[in-house]
Write a protein that binds this DNA or RNA. Sequence first.
DNA 1: TGGCCGTTTTAATCTGCATTAAAATACGGA
DNA 2: TCCGTATTTTAATGCAGATTAAAACGGCCA
Lengths: 198, 198
Amino acid sequence: MVTDSTKPSTPAFGDKRELLLRAAARCFNEKGYSGTSLKDVSAHLGLTDAAIYYYIDGKQQLVYECYKRAAAIGKLALDDAIEAGGTGLEVATSYVQRHVAAHCGEAGPIAIMSEIPSLRPDDREHILQLSREHSAKFEKILDQGIGDGSIHDCDVRMTGNAIMGAINWIPKWFHGDGETAARVVRTFPQYLMRGLIP
Amino acid sequence: MVTDSTKPSTPAFGDKRELLLRAAARCFNEKGYSGTSLKDVSAHLGLTDAAIYYYIDGKQQLVYECYKRAAAIGKLALDDAIEAGGTGLEVATSYVQRHVAAHCGEAGPIAIMSEIPSLRPDDREHILQLSREHSAKFEKILDQGIGDGSIHDCDVRMTGNAIMGAINWIPKWFHGDGETAARVVRTFPQYLMRGLIP
DNA sequence: TGGCCGTTTTAATCTGCATTAAAATACGGA
DNA sequence: TCCGTATTTTAATGCAGATTAAAACGGCCA
């Protein structure tokens, strides 16, 4: 899914675009959407601000792409977990582990979707849609777990909110590299899953 | 703690200042610090942007005060819980309930401290300091709970991160009024506490 | 070497917004 | 009613940063 741009599309082009999105995500997470200038982003790439326009139509599209990327990564974690199968608890655990790993791993920083109101109306609606779908799908897993007895009978809406919040907040405190990442991926989900056990 | 401003200080002045901080917090939570103009904030109060300067020195100070307020509210919840006493688990539960109640309650929206890098260096250091103290104090409670057997032996750093993340994220999904607030305050903490039980 | 294409920069332009100063309004008390 | 203080507005000013257009650079192939 993706390049609707009328720009050339050498292999290198796509790679650099990806780097751009990560650099932007890092900046946005630190200083917010409006708080980061295109100069901030381009500096991470050793470029000038104007160079960004070669890869993307403007700042608005940049956030939009970042948020789409964040949604896609979350969705992938969830879908993979579902496909792997198991009890509700097992699927939920698998998802959390995968999503946490994505946050701490090679994918580089994932944009926190915290400034959705800043998006253009159409884009915002799309992102909200993706977000709602994600929540709904996760809550369904919790429901299944309650059904099959692997998860304690809880308010799935609130429980989902809590787990998503904890995950979404990760970029706020995690800035480490590989070594510490491994530790986080191992220990962080433990507490979250513990609250689900009957 | 507080008015170092050289402005007049009628009783009404303080009240309006408080309303200003809440309006600002709401705006900041929605569109981020740089994303909200002083016009946005003043509109919530039926004022002009310039009127804000009667109450506060500038936009920078506005965030700073918002963040200080957020920190103070969190600290109050924690200190009250500690004073109420009990096992580690009881204190932790009490804290979470109080903090969640503050988020959903009359205190109006509490600013999410998500754009700390945008603060002036001195202010930033102060806020970070408060934030660190808060985390440390909460982790100590978890340690106590592990010690007295009321809390499962867990990684207190990660567990603290998870719980704080879940709480900090509340303003992102809670926009309701009294009725729904009561339900949230009752059900939201349940899951969080469940993960602590041995 | 010369020219084309992909990439980046330089040098404007334009707009939104924080900030300030001066003027206007509201209102309680003499 | 008139004055003075508290509050708010109107009307500049100035800058930062997004966006654009045109020029420059770099390498690859003929």
